[in-house]
Structures are given as C-alpha cells and as structure tokens.
C-alpha cells in the first residue's frame, strides 16, 4: 500500500482507502471509491492523472497523498468484490 502521490506512472492500482470525508465524497461522485481500479497515466510533482474506465481524473499532489492504493500485478483481474443488491 502506498499513497497515490508516490505511485509511478504506468501502474495499475486499486484504491484501498481515501482519507477525509469531503475528498472521499468528491471522488466517489466522480467514480472513484474504495475498490476502484485505475491506471496511473501521470504521476509526478505536479499531481496524478488517474484513468478509470474512460474518465481521466486529475488529482492534485496534496489530494493524491490522501488516497492510498495497492499496485496490482499484471495478471490480477478486477479485484472489486461483487455488489450483491441487484436482482435483474
């Protein structure tokens, strides 16, 4: 586990924890929450660009320090647990 801010570009990561209520709600509304898998497009002193699905979210350096992620190995599938509330 490491802060997103320190994650090198090119990695696939799973969001493990988001610190701070506001940031959590903000990111959640944009589709990033615990369990979300994304692709780090840019990660450097200016901040991080995380690609989730077809969306690119730019996250400033300060905010990126509050997002804890786990780097996925190339063969790992989408590890998010199934939500069980939908019955089609």
């Amino acid at each position: 586990m490491m802060p997103l801010a320190l994650c090198p570009p090119g990695e696939r990561v799973e969001v493990v924890h988001i610190r701070g209520r506001r940031l959590r709600e903000r990111l959640r509304s944009m589709g990033i929450t615990e369990g979300t898998v994304g692709h780090v497009l840019q990660g450097h002193g200016l901040g991080v660009i995380l690609k989730v699905g077809n969306t690119r979210i730019a996250i400033g350096r300060g905010a990126a320090h509050k997002v804890l992620v786990r780097v996925l190995t190339p063969d790992e599938e989408n590890p998010r647990p199934l939500a069980s509330q939908v019955r089609p």
Partner: peptide, 10 residues
C-alpha cells in the same frame, strides 16, 4: 486551499 480534483475531458 482545498484539495485539487478535476475531470480532464477528452
């Protein structure tokens, strides 16, 4: 200032 989060449109 508050934290920076912004969607980058294509």
């Amino acid at each position: 200032p508050s934290l920076f989060v912004l969607e980058l449109p294509p």
